[in-house]
Design a protein around this nucleic acid. Structure first.
Lengths: 118, 118
DNA sequence: CTACTAGTTAGAGTTAACTCTAAGTCAACT
DNA sequence: AGTTGACTTAGAGTTAACTCTAACTAGTAG
């Protein structure tokens, strides 16, 4: 599929997709005879995974690191797993923290509701 | 308390605290005779609340809006409550989303654990 | 009196992650 | 042949949220 279709599907602008390629998140995207990019379904999966990592707070630099390890094939499986497990741990902490924040916010709102705030 | 003590207590650099003042998050901080800032316990509470909003993804601009409403006193209670309730709603959504991401990440890691990834 | 410490200001610099601009190419229509 | 539209590139510009620099001052210890 072409840029526009892919951009629509993954909900990232063409600018962002080219940027992701520039910083090494997306590698060897195919080209047609006139030099335009052609994306595959595997590209969709990969970008979706990038988005997931990003949405859970992983910086693009670290996603790039994961991408590079992936490039190196089977010998980096362990390292990639560790990277993801570390991220998983951070995410669990983050969710715990956010739940605490939510509780405190609920309490604050209850003060407003009961008219104890001016 | 002075800059250093306050900075230690709220775990924000002096740079950041001055910046927060500059952008209108912190207002009428007291000064001593030589022009140095003096912070109170109420300042601690307020900065802690700012941090909570920030940590839950509220942009400083919106926190600033809340701060400004607070300045205007009792007549803005309703508006402030609404602002917080909107944020609460976003936060609930965010937590839900993060939990979904976590589940997907768990699944991915399980693929690694069972050797289904190369 | 001098040195040191802890602050002060205005404004410049940094970083991440885009986002856009300008100039150009290529294929398809009219 | 000319126009349109969807791309291409290199590189400049933007935004949020800091972070730092330079030059200065006030209070304290030796």
């Amino acid at each position: 599929m072409n840029m526009r279709e892919f951009s629509d599907k993954v909900e990232l602008s063409a600018y962002t997709l080219r940027y992701y390629e520039k910083v090494g998140l997306l590698k060897h995207v195919q080209r047609n005879t006139s030099g335009h990019r052609i994306y595959s379904n595997r590209d969709i999966d990969w970008v979706d995974f990038i988005k997931r990592l990003k949405d859970t707070g992983m910086p693009l630099k670290e996603i790039q690191k994961y991408a590079s390890l992936r490039e190196l094939g089977a010998q980096t499986v362990k390292e990639r797993q560790e990277l993801l497990e570390k991220h998983q741990e951070n995410l669990v902490k983050h969710i715990r923290q956010q739940n605490e924040h939510l509780k405190a916010l609920d309490a604050k709102i209850n003060l407003y509701k009961s008219g104890e705030v001016s």
